[in-house]
């Protein structure tokens, strides 16, 4: 049986996912992906009605059971400093990350 996730597709996915894997991890993950996809292909054996309605959630919400939207009222978070305190690198209230090199036109 041919593999759906070839090493090329796999490497592309790894890049998209912002990951970087050693060979052992890559081999395991690619094998598992292909195994799972085999299981997923079972879905193709189901005849699906054209008018089958897709919903985001299994439970259906009515107008009365849907929570009301938020009123536009300002409620400042009491301790933004605690959020910033979680960041690995902070300087003068800014969160710091490395740059991405930039290309110049011409």
């Amino acid at each position: 049986m041919s593999e759906e996730i070839t090493p090329e597709i796999f490497n592309h996915l790894v890049t998209l996912a912002a990951l970087e894997l050693d060979d052992k991890q890559a081999a395991y993950l690619r094998r598992e992906l292909n195994q799972q996809l085999k299981a997923i292909h079972e879905l193709e054996s189901i005849p699906l009605d054209v008018d089958l309605k897709i919903t985001t959630h299994g439970v259906s919400y009515s107008l009365t059971t849907s929570p009301v939207l938020r009123e536009d009222t300002w409620l400042p978070h009491p301790n933004p400093g605690e959020i910033l305190a979680q960041a690995p690198q902070v300087d003068e209230q800014y969160i710091i990350v490395p740059d991405i090199p930039h290309e110049k036109l011409d």
Partner: peptide, 18 residues
Amino acid sequence: RNEAFGLQPKLRILMGMY
């Protein structure tokens, strides 16, 4: 992400991406 995610999160991320 490589150093701090275990194999199971990585597997789910890759499948989700695909």
